[in-house]
Each structure stands twice: as C-alpha cells, then as structure tokens.
Simulated assay, not measured.
Amino acid sequence: MTQPNLPAPTAAVLEAFSSAFGGAPDGVWRAPGRVNLIGEHTDYNEGFALPFAIGLAAHVALRARPDRTARLTTTRRDPGRPGHGGEVIELDLDTLSKGSARAWSVYPAGVAWALGLRGTPVPGFDLALDSTVPVGAGLSSSHAIECAVAIALAELAGAELRVEDLVLLTQQAENGFVGAPTGILDQSASLRGEAGHAVLLDCRDQSAELIPFDPAAAGLGILVVDTTVAHSHAEGGYASRRAACELAAEVLGVPALRDVSPADLPEARALLDPTTFRRVRHVVTEDERVHETVRVLRADGPRGIGPLLDASHASMRDDFEISCPELDLAVAAAREAGALGARMTGGGFGGSAIALVPLDRGDAVSAAVLAAFEKAGFARPELFSVSPAGGAGRVL
C-alpha cells in the first residue's frame, strides 16, 4: 500500500489505513502541533498570543463511506486503552453526542458532530490516524487531530470553510463535545502557521499577523522539555482558571480581561479577592508581554526576548499557579546552563517547557536538564528541538 519516497508519517498512516480497511483512502491531510512562544491563558480572555506551528503533526487518511458510520483506527500503541494499536472504533454519526465516543476518538467524532450542528452534511468515513505530536506534552496533540480531521471532512463534504470557520468549528468540538473549555489559540496556530514565522493572534476578532521568527538564523534553537507529567484540559484546573477570569471580568465591568490595562490593576486589587486578582494580573501583564515580544522581535530579533520568556514563566508560576515542580526545574536548569530564556508552554499542570538556547550551548543545556531531573528523582524528560513550520493542509 505504501508508496516510495513518502515521508514516514504519510507512509505510516497509509499502511494503517490499508491494514484496517483495505484499499486506498481518498486523501491524506496533516495538521501540526504548536508551541506557544508567549501569551498563555490569554485566548479565552479575548487577548493576544504568539504561537507557532511545529514540524510534529497529526496525519489522517480518510475515505468516504456510503452510510452514516465512522470507523476509526490509529497507529498509536497504548496497551489497555480502547481504540489503540490497530483496533477499530465504530461510531454512528446519527447518534453522536457528548459521551458517545471514547479515548482518542472523541476528537474526530467531535469535529463530525460540530460540522453536523452547522448543517454541513458529513458522509460516513473510514479514518486512520498517525501522530508524532506527544500526547499530554502541552503541544496541542488534540487540536492537531481536530484540525486535520476538520479540513479533511470539510473537503469530503464539499464545504468551503474559511480558516476562521475552521477555528470556531474545532473550538466547538473541544468545548461542546470533548468537554475542554479551551480558547482558539491552538487551532489558530495549526491552521495559520508558516515556516520561519510566529502567528500574532488577536483572540477577540481572530485577526492574525505573521511575525518573522527564525531562531536558527540567529544562531538559536528552541529546546522542548517534555516533563512527561500528563495533563488534561478537560480536568478542573484549567476550567477553574477560566471561571475566575470570567468572574473577574464581570466584577470589573468589562467584556473580557483583554479590556483591563496595567493602569487598572490597583482598582482591580481593591475589588477582587487576592487569588482572583493574581489571575487577572497574569492575564493583563501577559498581554503586555506578547506586544513587547513582537516589538523586540521586529527591532532586535529572537536574541532579545529571553527576559520576556522568563517573566512569563514567573507569572504563570506565581500569579496563575499553573506550573509544577518539574516545569519549574526544567526552566531553572536550562537558564543556569546558558539558555537565554525559558518558560512553560501550554495549558499548564504538566506538559512541556521551552528554552531559547544558543546552538553552541544546546548539548550543555540538555545535559543540565537531564542531570537536574535525575538528581531531583523525577522521571526522565523527553528533550527535542522544534522550529516554526507550515500549517495544516492536504498532503496526498
């Protein structure tokens, strides 16, 4: 079934499709994971963020069926969990509802469900998934799946959806079907990314601007430290932070925390309890850090943004309280070994940290992080480098 000279993920998903369903798919689509350079928990506050797409991606092979059945399989092997390692999950598209799908199938099922709500006639389909985005690492593995499935099903259904439509569609799948109260940052990066650029995203109106960001050209690399501490956006920590932000906006009389300026913080302190105030202070100062990062990138290039990454991590650790000991250690060890700046990335409560590292210090920084984790008795982290890559699209 596989064809010569295909990239490994494309070959893998074709092989999985053939093994499970026989024959060839109608096409193969991919959508990348993302790293958020800066701007965390600002998206659902209608603020600003600066993510970039990465080379790690979800690939889906799909073939339309003449009925209303969806059959799903994946190359991922996770013994004891349903729907992994070649098992086929079968779903009835006419009875899809929250709770009707299991394990990883909630992501493609959620997209089909959301398309149905908007009146797009989704055919039955066979789907195989291969993803190189680590699960639970804070690199948006779930949105990579959803974006790949969304562009594939939209094409098979003949629906001409704009990027803005796809962003809201996948957010609806996450919020209404998966049950994760996420914003629009992750899918926006996956759908809009371009090599050598970060995406400056205005989460109020979805306007986006590509900002040149080429660390390698500046002699730098982006090191990802996956702590292997798993997290889930559907669990309570993320939801409670969002609820606190929404409550604060109501008390402060603004549509969203994006409308609170640094000059408003003294008044906010007087009106809010100390914990809620700290949540607000993180969001307000993080929006400011996004704008300052863009300014520095334009004026001085990537080498100047290290202190902003450090300040962002301190804010997430102390004000938003979404870090964990492993993330804090990764950031501290990387900085001490020569990283120009470091921060946790993603929703928090586990996942990954990123470090901006001079290329000639890459091995030393990696070794220092590994040694620090071993000394602390933490599980060995996964370390790898990423760079800004292209966004979602059809590959075959």
Rank of each mutant, 00 (worst) to 15 (best):
A333T: 04
R295F: 02
V88K: 06
M316G: 11
S323K: 01
G80H: 02
D126H: 00
P82E: 12
V283R: 12
I184V: 15
D264H: 12
V35E: 03
R68T: 15
A101K: 08
E90L: 08
R269E: 15
R242T: 13
T2A: 14
L56M: 10
A173Q: 10
D287H: 14
D328T: 04
A49D: 13
A101W: 06
A58G: 01
G136M: 01
V111I: 09
R380P: 10
D94N: 14
A189N: 11
G55S: 13
V88D: 06
L201I: 12
L166Q: 10
A311W: 05
G119Y: 06
S385H: 13
T293S: 02
L200G: 08
P325D: 03
I211F: 07
D214L: 02
S387M: 06
V111Q: 12
G393F: 09
F277N: 15
A64N: 13
N175I: 01
P7T: 01
R118H: 11
V260I: 15
L72S: 06
C324K: 02
S323V: 00
D264N: 15
I54N: 00
G80I: 03
P325M: 00
V357D: 02
V229R: 12
G362L: 15
S190A: 15
T345K: 09
V167W: 00
L370H: 10
R71I: 08
S387N: 07
R303K: 10
T228Y: 05
V199I: 14
R335P: 00
I54G: 07
A195C: 01
E321D: 04
A249P: 03
D67T: 12
G136H: 13
A314G: 12
